[in-house]
Amino acid sequence: MSSTRDIDALIEMMARLPGLGPRSARRAVLHMIRKKSLVLIPLAELIHKVGATVRECALCGNLGSDDLCDICTSEKRANGEICVVEDVADLWAMERSGVFRGRYHVLGGTLSALDAIGPEDLRIPRLIGRVADEGITEVILALNATVDGQTTAHYIADQLEGRVRLTSLAQGVPVGGELDYLDDGTISAALRARKTL
């Protein structure tokens, strides 16, 4: 039936999103169609706008609509602290906690011998350059408590040893846990209880 081809295509596209399967996507699309002027049209306009303007921050790797994100351009955040995270989702999780008031550095992944991901494939050289250029006094390694996350943290610690105070998140982050799935209280407690490496 050609009359529903576009709707079926929208359902299939929505089902590709994390956390949505075919059934949830069908319900979401039906809701959007029923609330066309309140939900569907504004959502389509926003998706188009974000698609046209979103870019990676040239300094830290966060997402925004300008060359530098709001965090990197804020003078209040230039306190000598950089929090290193694996992904933008982890940065957003840290920001939700409202505890950290410094700047960030998004690596874009972790070191992985199995996937042939080395330091040059991540933003590790850029991080080392930022430490030298920006007068950084502390680097907080807020990487996921996975094998690859810890391997990456140790590599960065070796590269920066003696140049800057190195700390990592402490209590509250379970082994094998990922920042994006933690609640705000757990992230706050872990950030406050960070330890020197």
Rank of each mutant, 00 (worst) to 15 (best):
I128V: 13
L143R: 01
G135L: 11
L160Q: 05
N144R: 03
E134H: 04
T152N: 09
L143H: 02
G129V: 09
R163M: 15
L141A: 04
T152W: 06
Q159G: 05
V139N: 04
G129T: 14
T152P: 11
D133S: 13
G129H: 13
N144S: 12
L141S: 00
A157C: 11
R130I: 06
N144A: 10
I156F: 04
Q150E: 15
T152S: 10
A157Q: 11
L143Y: 00
E134N: 09
L160W: 01
A145L: 04
G162Q: 11
A153T: 08
H154N: 15
V147E: 14
G162V: 09
T137P: 05
L127S: 07
G149W: 04
L141C: 07
D133N: 12
I140A: 04
A157K: 07
Q159D: 12
T152M: 10
I156N: 05
G135P: 13
T146D: 07
T146V: 08
L127M: 06
I128E: 14
G149E: 09
Q150L: 11
L160E: 01
Q150Y: 01
D158C: 06
Q159K: 14
L127H: 01
G162W: 12
Y155N: 12
G162E: 14
L127Q: 05
V131N: 07
R163H: 14
Q159M: 15
D133I: 08
L141T: 00
T152C: 12
A142G: 03
Y155E: 14
D158I: 00
I128K: 03
D158T: 07
E161S: 13
A145D: 10
R130M: 14
T152F: 06
I136Q: 02
E134M: 13
I136K: 04
L160H: 00
G162H: 06
G135Y: 06
I128L: 15
I136A: 04
A145Y: 00
E138A: 02
Q159R: 14
R126A: 15
T137K: 14
V147C: 11
R130A: 12
I136T: 13
R126K: 11
L160R: 00
R126T: 13
G149T: 08
A157S: 14
L160D: 02
Q159T: 01
I156D: 02
I136F: 01
D158M: 08
A153M: 06
L143T: 02
I156R: 01
E138W: 00
I136G: 03
G135C: 11
V147L: 15
R126P: 10
Q159S: 13
E138Q: 05
T152L: 09
E134Q: 13
G135R: 09
E134S: 11
R163W: 12
G162S: 09
I128P: 05
G149M: 05
Y155I: 09
Y155S: 07
E161Y: 05
E161W: 08
E134V: 04
V139R: 06
I136D: 11
A157Y: 03
D158N: 12
L143Q: 00
E161R: 10
Q159H: 09
T137F: 09
T152A: 05
L143P: 00
D158H: 06
E138F: 05
I140F: 04
A132Y: 01
A142R: 04
G129C: 12
R163N: 14
E161A: 14
D148F: 12
D158S: 09
I156E: 04
G149C: 05
E138H: 03
A132S: 13
G129D: 15
Q150H: 02
D133Q: 13
T146G: 07
G162Y: 10
L160P: 00
R130P: 04
